[in-house]
Design a protein around this nucleic acid. Structure first.
Lengths: 330, 330
DNA sequence: TTGAAAGCGTTACCAG
DNA sequence: CTGGTAACGCTTTCAA
């Protein structure tokens, strides 16, 4: 690991001043073609690479956007990331990603590290632990240093751009559709009840279902959901499940399979799940599509605008989820 | 977006020198408790945050490790990432991730940006396009600036630490096991034939199967694989598929379902796929587990060692893949 | 056309 | 215990 070549060293080797080197490398009009050639040749030869740290410090710009995500195995979040990347790829900006694994401490650390000079702006979905703690000062602080955009897991009282999904409405309507299919008892399952988006989805379910019957919620870990769902299926006349995350969805699916209620359509199931899984299940699964890629591209667009117009008023964009009908809803 | 507070500004407001501020903030023994208190109080009040760029430039250290991945939807790669994170989380280091989306240009860009001051070391799996191009000078150059560790998709003639999987042997043995199950015609399917790891797997297949019959390879996109598999199933007496990536695996699965050869066990299928999918399919899928998390943690361990002992000789560690037997192999 | 000097924000050394 | 100065590697006036 040889030490990196610097402008200073080059300048000594070539017997010209550092400023000349800098200008020559940046192809400045002030420098003669002759010296330019000489310098660029030497730079190649000695494998000179400008130190980004120094350049960024000097310019006060990093041309980098930070993306802080709670998890990478969450299919929705990785779709969002794709959307962000697609947009940013066509700009001068680079992306660096930081994963918090749903941990508050990691999130605080990431937001601080990134906002203190490493990036020009941040896109973030807050972690589960943060939403439990309800402590968002690190987001606010970061937002004072660089523009922050929040998506999906929003914090209302932070003044920044936001991209969210109509969680309340989408579940409200799903339940309405199930009711229209003459489903008499609709259960909601969730392993993510701590999240703001879950609360909205649950609210949508409760307010939609209570016209028909009392709400029934099953919550907990994936295994707990499976057990509870199984128990319900055995003891009561439930005929539909709405599951608001992939784990809950698969737990309900397994329970339905075990009770042999799914294959003949006795039981309906609508859930959140990646297409790849939904399509390959037997029977294939009706899902709610959150259009993660669109959430991502919208977020990136919004942030780029803000970077152009720092004074701009904060904006909130809502993306509508849609139902992908497959075989688990007849 | 108010301008960030700096040591200089603080020093003016408090009427003490910048060096005193710096020392006070770093809790130096040279500073009286009194001034320390005063300075730290003011820092909190004015929301002072040290500029990372300046700190890193000064110290010549970033305490950050860069991870360059070709894709995030690849389940193996995201497992590896988890493994890396688990190890790094317990150290002084942070992680920043850069996704190349299998693009050579993005990879070159990422490696350069990261290696020129932004990180202390890099973990990388090269992109598909890079392996097609066979141009690795950007990896070599980065390796001259900071320690680079390659995993999975290795380049032989680069002198750096490596973590790889026994791709040849694992497929060789899978085919042998299928032969032992009295499978008479075993087909290999791949959508990733450009990758070095694919070449090894294919070699393992070819050299294992050719004792029994001529190798049959189907390659191309996921859709092409499905069509070709379907065609083979209709026209010939094939009784087993080995699929060396998740797309190919699911393509073969769908073909097998369509021909109704899977449910009764007429056809065997072994493939690479995430557990979550493999378990929920009907019939459940026998898979090859590459132990991504272990690959990740081993990589991180190795890199941390190197960071401690820069002079250390390069090391290559092989992780053994294992077969997860489920219902598609009787 | 070239170079000296200042400065980005921080820390470390050495005086005082 | 405190402060001035230099330095990290770079760019950008401004002067020569």
């Amino acid at each position: 690991m040889k030490k990196n070549m610097t402008i200073k060293e080059l300048s000594k080797m070539l017997g010209v001043s550092p400023s000349t080197i800098s200008k020559a490398l940046n192809d400045s009009y002030e420098i003669s073609e002759e010296t330019k050639a000489k310098v660029q040749e030497a730079a190649r030869l000695y494998n000179y690479k400008p130190n980004k740290l120094a350049v960024n410090l000097k310019s006060g710009k990093t041309s980098t956007i930070g993306v802080v995500l709670p998890s990478i195995k969450n299919f929705f979040l990785s779709r969002v990331l794709r959307g962000i990347e697609n947009v940013i790829a066509n700009t001068e900006y680079n992306i660096i990603i930081s994963i918090t694994n749903e941990s508050y401490d990691k999130e605080v650390n990431s937001m601080q590290t990134l906002s203190n000079g490493l990036v020009d702006a941040i896109i973030v979905a807050v972690s589960e632990e943060t939403q439990i703690k309800q402590n968002f000062s690190h987001i606010k602080e970061a937002n004072n240093q660089v523009p922050v955009l929040m998506f999906d897991r929003i914090v209302d009282d932070i003044d920044c751009d936001k991209v969210l999904i109509d969680d309340y409405e989408s579940i409200y309507n799903v339940v309405k559709q199930l009711t229209a299919l003459d489903k008499k008892k609709i259960v909601l399952a969730s392993t993510i009840s701590n999240l703001s988006v879950a609360k909205l989805r649950i609210k949508g379910y409760v307010e939609s279902v209570e016209k028909t019957h009392l709400p029934v919620l099953i919550e907990g870990s994936e295994e707990e959901i499976e057990a509870k769902a199984l128990h319900l299926m055995k003891s009561e006349e439930v005929d539909a499940f709405v599951a608001i995350d992939e784990e809950a969805t698969l737990a309900c699916f397994r329970a339905g399979k075990k009770q042999q209620l799914l294959d003949d359509g006795t039981l309906s199931l609508v859930g959140y799940a990646r297409r790849r899984i939904a399509e390959h299940l037997t029977p294939s699964l009706t899902t709610i599509d959150q259009h993660g890629k669109r959430v991502g591209s919208t977020s990136a667009d919004l942030l780029l605008e803000r970077l152009k117009k720092p004074g701009k008023k904060s904006e909130s964009v809502v993306i509508n989820a849609t139902v992908q009908k497959r075989s688990t809803t007849q």
